[in-house]
Simulated scan of single mutants.
Amino acid sequence: MSGCHLSVRGVSWQPGRGDPLLNRVSFELERGEVLGIAGANGAGKSTLLRLLYRFHRPVEGTVCLDGHDIWSLSAREAARKVAAVLQEQPTDFALSVREIVALGRRPHGSGFSRGGRWDADIVEGALERMGLADLAGRSMGTLSGGERQRVMVARALAQEPQLLILDEPTNHLDIRHQLEIVALLAGLDITVVTSLHDLNLAAQVCDRILLLHRGIQVAHGRPDEVLTSEHIEKAYAVKVHRRDCDPNGRALLTFHL
């Protein structure tokens, strides 16, 4: 078995007897790496994420965390190891920020209603880490979109996961809040898999990028290896122009039909 922290081998998924939405995708991540999944709408990004946080079971292939197939774990064990922040946010906006974050302790047998000092310390630590300590008593419904996104990440961190899954964390956010989320990702010290629309953003944030096209893996590797004109044109059906004008030496990408 691979010594990598996350090993995804030949995973495929299809709804019932329908056409495959994901076809034999493979990649490996070391502990603490950030992987960005990119591709056009319908590429299979969300489908792949659902396999990683055990919403769907692969029809083929395996997802292993620290050498263990995640489907060999109980649901509670899996929830202790894998946390997901989805585009859908809680609808009960009457809960306070602290109460929302405390829900992350439930896989450990506790929650905001009956957690002990250990749980409270973990919740406070997650609030501090996401810069939410001053907002802890506010109700979720009073927060901005960027603040709500930080709350959901704090809840996921309160789970103390080994793997954090983020589905389009910058979607529908303005530039300021996108930058907040980018800074957030850069500061985490756990393994992260996130889907991202913005390839320039992915190049800044991610250690590795997986590029998909209609459920098929186009490329996987370092951003400079994956974000080539050939790969991007194959995945998005657009022309690409690369400009090496980033202060850190990274190429900036522009697109046209």
Score class of each variant (00 low, 15 high):
residue 125 G to D: 14
residue 53 Y to F: 15
residue 123 V to C: 06
residue 114 R to S: 13
residue 139 S to N: 04
residue 75 A to K: 12
residue 89 Q to V: 01
residue 178 Q to H: 12
residue 116 G to H: 01
residue 55 F to W: 07
residue 97 V to H: 04
residue 166 L to H: 10
residue 112 F to D: 02
residue 54 R to A: 15
residue 60 E to K: 14
residue 108 H to Y: 13
residue 121 D to E: 15
residue 91 T to A: 10
residue 69 D to C: 13
residue 114 R to L: 07
residue 133 A to T: 15
residue 87 Q to T: 15
residue 121 D to K: 07
residue 154 A to W: 06
residue 69 D to S: 11
residue 137 G to P: 02
residue 122 I to V: 15
residue 148 R to V: 14
residue 78 A to I: 06
residue 157 L to Q: 07
residue 69 D to R: 03
residue 86 L to H: 11
residue 102 A to W: 07
residue 150 R to A: 02
residue 176 R to T: 12
residue 121 D to C: 04
residue 120 A to D: 15
residue 85 V to K: 08
residue 67 G to Y: 10
residue 116 G to S: 07
residue 76 R to T: 11
residue 116 G to K: 05
residue 67 G to M: 04
residue 87 Q to M: 06
residue 116 G to D: 14
residue 59 V to F: 01
residue 121 D to Q: 13
residue 79 A to C: 09
residue 134 D to G: 13
residue 141 G to P: 05
residue 141 G to T: 05
residue 98 R to L: 07
residue 137 G to L: 03
residue 146 G to A: 09
residue 156 A to Y: 09
residue 102 A to K: 04
residue 137 G to K: 07
residue 150 R to T: 03
residue 110 S to P: 05
residue 152 M to T: 04
residue 55 F to K: 12
residue 72 S to Q: 15
residue 103 L to T: 10
residue 78 A to L: 08
residue 91 T to W: 02
residue 171 N to M: 01
residue 80 R to T: 03
residue 120 A to G: 10
residue 110 S to E: 03
residue 98 R to H: 11
residue 176 R to Q: 14
residue 77 E to N: 09
residue 68 H to F: 08
residue 175 I to N: 04
residue 66 D to A: 14
residue 170 T to A: 07
residue 85 V to R: 09
residue 52 L to F: 08
residue 145 G to R: 13
residue 104 G to L: 07
residue 128 E to A: 06
residue 76 R to A: 15
residue 61 G to H: 01
residue 78 A to S: 15
residue 65 L to E: 11
residue 156 A to F: 10
residue 100 I to L: 13
residue 74 S to Y: 02
residue 169 P to D: 06
residue 95 L to I: 05
residue 81 K to R: 15
residue 169 P to L: 02
residue 95 L to A: 15
residue 118 W to V: 12
residue 68 H to P: 00
residue 139 S to Y: 09
residue 151 V to M: 00
residue 125 G to I: 01
residue 55 F to A: 10
residue 116 G to Y: 00
residue 126 A to K: 00
residue 162 Q to G: 15
residue 71 W to S: 09
residue 166 L to N: 14
residue 147 E to G: 07
residue 166 L to K: 11
residue 122 I to F: 02
residue 54 R to N: 04
residue 115 G to I: 05
residue 136 A to S: 14
residue 78 A to N: 10
residue 109 G to I: 09
residue 125 G to H: 10
residue 150 R to E: 06
residue 98 R to S: 03
residue 128 E to P: 00
residue 114 R to M: 04
residue 156 A to C: 13
residue 164 L to I: 03
